[in-house]
Design a protein around this nucleic acid. Sequence first.
DNA 1: GTAACTGCAAAATATTTGCATCCTT
DNA 2: AAGGATGCAAATATTTTGCAGTTAC
Lengths: 142, 142
Amino acid sequence: MAIAKQYTVNELLRRFQLNVTDSRKKILQLFLNQQEALAHADIEKKAGEKFDRVTVYRTLQTFVEKGLIHSIPTADNSILYALCKDDCTEGHHQDHHIHFVCEQCEKTACLDQVNIPEIKLPLGFKKEKIDVVISGICKACS
Amino acid sequence: MAIAKQYTVNELLRRFQLNVTDSRKKILQLFLNQQEALAHADIEKKAGEKFDRVTVYRTLQTFVEKGLIHSIPTADNSILYALCKDDCTEGHHQDHHIHFVCEQCEKTACLDQVNIPEIKLPLGFKKEKIDVVISGICKACS
DNA sequence: GTAACTGCAAAATATTTGCATCCTT
DNA sequence: AAGGATGCAAATATTTTGCAGTTAC
């Protein structure tokens, strides 16, 4: 299911078979409000009022499981999360876009417009999922 | 500098301007002994005798800084490390190969023979470094 | 001999779990 | 009302830091 901004958080949560709760509405809204990917810590900070740390952990995990957001691996150990704009379903994320990490502003975003080219693997390897993370200087910083 | 197996650990450490110490020799040997990438925890376990946890952290960090190994980002937060076989120099890793994570045996390896195709970024973005991680079923498991 | 490296202890962080309470449906 | 979600406390796990003793060059 593609996530478009015209949906309200309530609608989105319902569509993804999640109970509508305060924390979920607020955290989902954070993702809708902006382009860049968020780390666990960002969410704790950005939320006007504080959520319990544990609630943030559990909410992010639930969102990933339901296919509402996906995690982006980064070389420095931290995990980032971003809305799935592709067709992700429960348990199976199809991320056909690349992720871009800006070394200047440190923001990470999904470049939905860039497709990942076909990569031919050696005989015997079966591809299931591909993650591409490019770092450099983003449009805003160059 | 490319890392070939014919070098002894002592030679390698010298070439990378590192003092030759016991921990470094043993940890480097672990990497030379096998193909797959190692996590911090693997190293603590695999080393016949135990190193101090802290020594492992510091050694891995030093190795990465000097360009002896590189870190591989994974979606589940853990960081893996593998020998740099490409031309990496201090502070600048050029990883032109892809990383493959097997969903069956859970091993991660560098596929040196596979090149990353050119990816064209939107105007304004400048590429510095690219990480490609493909998961699926590896040759040995299929 | 000097600078660098290690190991121990401890601090600082990050993540997970159990459980009682509260909220959503 | 029932199941699910939250918040608190506490248990674990992970990573970092300081420092004294040891080792490499």
